[in-house]
């Protein structure tokens, strides 16, 4: 505690000086502990967000042009059908890939946590996270070679005598790409949740007459609900803001919110005001998701401490 709570403090003995004069007071401890992270949050999160908020409140604000007065014009612009359609598509991509990740991830996580041979378990988990260590751009690009008309998947279809399919440049490709990108997160979170599952509860349920399906739906799912919620929200948040996959795999009709924002900031219109308003909507959606995440997170800690 004698150390300076502010790493960038100008006077080297400022911290110890403060500690001497204020040490008896109760708030010093928390302030010193929270100070650096609070400052960090303030500088790198609060201020930039407020800047975006301010820019978003100037209708028609553009890079390199004099700014007008404040107003809600940028937000009203979002309500136009074309932009609502973009938002709707982003939501659909995010929801779809979340469900896909859950459907694919749960069996895998279940197997890893409860059925895989114990000595191999850590290795298997690492194997599942391994794809995360490569660039997301590369992973998305790899899917183009799999999904394109003469790609791996259609070659396989040809060998099996199935008709060639159009995969690349469709919403399906975006869903596949997003699900693949975020599946490891889902598996990891579900694995952590399922690993903590008290298998004695499953025995108790069996003892009370529940068959395996009933045990799954009445015990396993409710018991791992915080993990399921956390995994879903994380994938949802990541998929909602993803830029790379829709761009590479989505084809001609794949405009989503992050690309739209990109176009406002780095495209020829340079409509920073509108772009900021779109960003604020995205920030709000993600914050909402995080708030839900924290709520479920709290519930899980409550149940944990009670055991």
């Amino acid at each position: 505690m004698a150390e300076s709570p502010l790493p960038s403090s100008p006077a080297p003995d400022w911290g110890s000086h403060l500690a001497q004069t204020l040490a008896p007071q109760r708030w010093l401890g928390p302030v010193a502990m929270l100070g650096p992270s609070g400052l960090w949050l303030f500088l790198l999160l609060v201020i930039p967000t407020l800047l975006i908020l301010e820019i978003s409140l100037v209708p028609g604000l553009r890079l390199g042009q004099p700014a007008g007065g404040y107003g809600l014009g940028n937000y009203l612009q979002i309500l136009e059908p074309v932009y609502l359609r973009v938002m709707g598509r982003s939501l659909a991509f995010a929801l779809g890939s979340t469900l896909l990740c859950l459907g694919l991830g749960f069996p895998v996580a279940y197997w890893l946590a409860l059925m895989s041979p114990k000595p191999w378990r850590n290795l298997l988990v690492v194997a599942f996270i391994l794809p995360l260590w490569t660039s997301s751009l590369l992973r998305a690009y790899a899917w183009t070679t799999i999904l394109r008309p003469s790609g791996v998947l259609n070659t396989l279809f040809g060998v099996l005598g199935l008709p060639s399919q159009t995969w690349l440049n469709t919403p399906t490709a975006v869903l596949i790409g997003l699900a693949y990108s975020f599946l490891p997160y889902m598996v990891l979170i579900l694995y952590a949740s399922l690993e903590k599952l008290d298998t004695r509860l499953l025995e108790a349920a069996a003892d009370l007459g529940a068959n395996p399906q009933q045990r799954f739906w009445k015990i396993t799912v409710p018991q791992t609900l915080p993990g399921i919620a956390a995994g879903c929200l994380l994938v949802f948040i990541a998929a909602l803001g993803d830029f790379v996959v829709p761009t590479l795999l989505g084809g001609a009709s794949s405009m989503n919110i992050s690309r739209l924002i990109y176009n406002q900031f780095l495209g020829p219109t340079r409509a920073w005001g509108f772009g900021s308003a779109l960003s604020m909507v995205l920030i709000l959606a993600v914050s909402l998701a995080i708030a839900l995440l924290l709520k479920y997170g709290d519930r899980s800690t409550v149940t944990e401490t009670s055991q």
Partner: peptide
């Protein structure tokens, strides 16, 4: 046709 009382109780804490 048996029922068990567990040492850990194993009550379902979500119910």
């Amino acid at each position: 046709p048996v029922n068990t009382v567990f040492q850990s109780y194993a009550l379902f804490d979500h119910m």
